[in-house]
Design a protein around this nucleic acid. Structure first.
Length: 409
RNA sequence: GCGUCGGUGGCGGAGUGGUCAAACGCACCUGGCUGUAAACCAGGCGCCCUUGUGGCUACGCAGGUUCGAAUCCUGCCCGGCGCACCA
């Protein structure tokens, strides 16, 4: 047990891999932002052979927005793409109507076909920000799943046990809590597994919460006399509040968020997550990330590195110019507490402060407006206003809390 | 189907005739301290208004008892558990 030297400091979300140079294509695939690889030796050999492997990722169109947590596997696909692999993107239009339970503590609602269709439309654009779409295969799993008969499904199901399904922690937890677990949910891993058969996947990636489903894919392929896919899992990332980033927690940073919003949200991320975010959500060379980790250990102000993080991510999903603007806006408005010159404008139907707050969408009801006013959370032209009936003159800048501004016309 | 327990605010979870718009925790909002971080401190957190020992709506749904119900009764809907040949 020697001293933990800074030199060898282990970065979060990086899997140690022997004999590969950091930031090489292969290293990036197998080490950066990777939790587990099965079967590692097998996959590494195939990658080294230069074979054009078919790498699969499935996403349920449960929400029209991709958030940063979901980009972790997408960036991993990008690594694979850059290592010369064929990306196969499965749009879970069929499974999305069934509802996965891997990362849920409750049953998921079945989506209607229209909802799936609507969410689908925004997907390609968002994925296109990360991967070059031209070389990707897009498949909807309804193409093959809708064709299976009851007989087929029963045959498949005969090879899997409820025991295994029920042993999963989240299912076990739900059962222990007396919550309902439907039979339908047990079918989900089978469907995802059959996707692998249908597209002849060589590799499937997913978050660690997908481990069970990914493994089922291996079994399913064996059932159909295919070589089982290798699987690679990526870590789950925490959101702005420190809990797992998830649409249902409302703690997400979405890639369709505007640059200023995205930048601002990234600045609220906890300090402890800065390095992890760099590893998982950017492709900043690992040597530089390591440098940041050391600097932070030495007592650098985390704010500087968080600014760099926010800039890097905002620039990636928008543009360097947009990131620059967002950073300046952030610094002016929050660090220097100056008033933004380009606040959104509002032409209210009435000029009392309560109406303005309501119509600006800053409060959900007049009652809330009164409360916030009483709390001293509202400023008009920089001065705290507490009277719910106060009149706001045209041209005035109204501020609620720290970050909500509107210019009254 | 029978039995049994249960369905409360965004979530978890108290409350079992009045003092309940409903404890407590989480999330959320505002203020303080700051780096719009965390932690911490203070306040708030159904809606409406002429801000009051004010009005209205809410504790699965529909009725009922009562001066008065989230709390009692009846029916219905939904969920858990047990039973459903051997038990």
């Amino acid at each position: 047990m020697g001293h933990m030297s800074l030199h060898n400091a282990q970065l979060p979300a990086i899997r140690p891999v022997k004999g590969l140079e950091e930031d090489s294509a292969l290293w990036s695939v197998l080490a950066r932002g990777v939790e587990e690889v099965i079967d590692e030796d097998h996959l590494r050999k195939r990658l080294e052979s230069g074979e054009r492997l078919r790498v699969k990722l499935g996403i349920d169109p449960t929400s029209p927005h991709l958030h940063l947590g979901r980009t972790v596997p997408l960036l991993k696909l990008r690594d694979f793409q850059q290592a010369g692999c064929q990306i196969v993107f499965i749009i879970g239009d069929f499974t999305g109507q069934i509802g996965d339970t891997s990362d849920k503590d409750s049953e998921r609602p079945m989506l209607s076909e229209e909802e799936v269709e609507r969410n689908l439309q925004t997907y390609r654009d968002q994925v296109g920000k990360i991967l070059s779409l031209g070389e990707i295969e897009f498949e909807r799993n309804s193409k093959w799943l809708s064709r299976l008969s009851y007989k087929d499904i029963a045959w498949q199901a005969g090879f899997f046990s409820v025991n295994d399904f029920v042993a999963r922690e989240n299912i076990a937890r739900r059962l222990a809590a007396g919550k309902r677990v439907t039979l339908r949910e047990t079918l989900y891993p089978l469907m995802q597994g059959y996707d692998s058969v249908a597209v002849r996947a060589d590799v499937e990636i997913g978050g660690t919460d997908q481990r069970f489903n990914l493994l089922t894919g291996r079994d399913m392929q064996r059932l159909y006399s295919q070589e089982p896919q290798d699987i690679l899992t990526t870590p789950i990332i925490e959101g702005t509040d420190g809990r797992k980033m998830s649409s249902s927690w409302g703690n997400t940073i979405n890639i369709l968020d505007g640059p200023r919003d995205m930048f601002g949200k990234l600045m609220t991320v906890r300090d402890e997550l800065i390095v992890k975010y760099f590893v998982l959500l950017t492709r900043e060379p690992i040597a530089e990330v390591r440098g940041r980790a050391k600097a932070l250990e030495r007592g650098d102000n985390p704010r500087e590195h968080k600014l760099a993080l926010a800039f890097a991510i905002t620039a990636f999903y928008h543009s360097p110019q947009a990131a620059q603007d967002a950073q300046e806006y952030f610094i002016h408005t929050f660090s220097e507490k100056t008033v933004p010159s380009d606040a959104p404008e509002l032409r209210p139907s009435a000029y009392d402060i309560t109406s303005v707050l309501l119509e600006a969408g800053f409060v959900a009801s007049k009652s809330e407006a009164r409360r916030v006013l009483a709390d001293g959370g509202v400023r008009v032209n920089g001065k705290v206003v507490r009277d719910p009936g106060a009149v706001v003159p045209p041209g005035a800048l109204v501020q609620k809390g720290k970050r909500h501004f509107v210019r009254v016309l």
